[in-house]
Simulated scan of single mutants.
Amino acid sequence: MTVVEPRLTLERRLLREHPLVIACDEVGRGALAGPVAVGAAVVDARDARRRVPAGLRDSKLVPEHRRADVAARAASWVSASAVGWASSTEIDEVGIMRALGNAALRALAELRGAGVRAEDCIVILDGNYDYISAAGGSGLNVRPVIKADRDCASAAAASVIAKVARDELMGDLHHGQPHYQWARNKGYASPEHRDAIRSRGISVHHRSSWSIADAPTLF
């Protein structure tokens, strides 16, 4: 399989018209347990002239044992970064797409602490649906880009930063619920995770609307 290395082609083009580019990407969308997280990475003209960190890829393409190192170098490369969260309870209450939008807005709000006003930037959002504006992100210039996490270095940075943050959180949650094996499966529907749900039921960290309603097909 040929691995596509992310570039800065789109970012450099957008930076001709905008002072900053913010790239957003989500992790944890398909998990049965734990929150979703949306990473946000800020790139300016100076960053776009620098070499992309070695090994930076969409987080799904970075080997697990290398992700923390790649994420740390990605965070040092971009001007600023943040991770926004939406809990499993929130996902049950408002649905996954609204929860993603809420998490993204929280990441963008966190960037304000670094002096980044999202309203002054253009936001690259991985995917084909603008869940940020749909969640109430008025005044934002959001551009959905299919496979942005694969092709755009800024989105790959957002992806791996969020992935490492969420994996660490799931590792922490594992200590309180070790039978679900979250340290290994990160809340996704692995065989041991499904078996534990069958035998023990769901925890407070599970997305009950998924883990129960979808049980006939998932388990």
Results as ranks from 00 to 15, higher is better:
V116C: 07
A80G: 05
P144W: 02
A33S: 14
A68G: 08
A114F: 12
L20C: 02
G39W: 06
R12Y: 12
A80N: 08
S88T: 05
S79P: 00
I22M: 07
A99P: 02
E119V: 10
A72E: 15
R46V: 14
E26N: 09
R66M: 13
R66I: 03
A103W: 03
I122R: 15
E17F: 10
E26I: 11
V145N: 05
L125E: 02
G30L: 09
E93N: 12
H65P: 00
A75M: 04
D130H: 09
G137D: 01
G95Y: 03
A45C: 07
V38F: 08
G101T: 08
L105R: 11
H65N: 13
E119R: 14
V83Q: 01
R117N: 14
W85S: 00
L15S: 04
L105G: 05
V62Y: 05
A104M: 04
R29L: 05
L61S: 14
R66H: 12
Y131T: 08
A54K: 13
A54P: 01
A99Q: 06
R98V: 12
S79T: 13
W85E: 01
G139L: 10
V70C: 11
G115W: 08
V70M: 08
V94E: 05
S87V: 03
A103Q: 05
V42S: 04
P53F: 03
R67M: 12
L105V: 09
A114E: 14
S87P: 02
H65V: 12
D47P: 00
E110F: 01
R67W: 10
V78M: 04
P19L: 06
W77T: 14
V145I: 15
A71Q: 10
P35N: 07
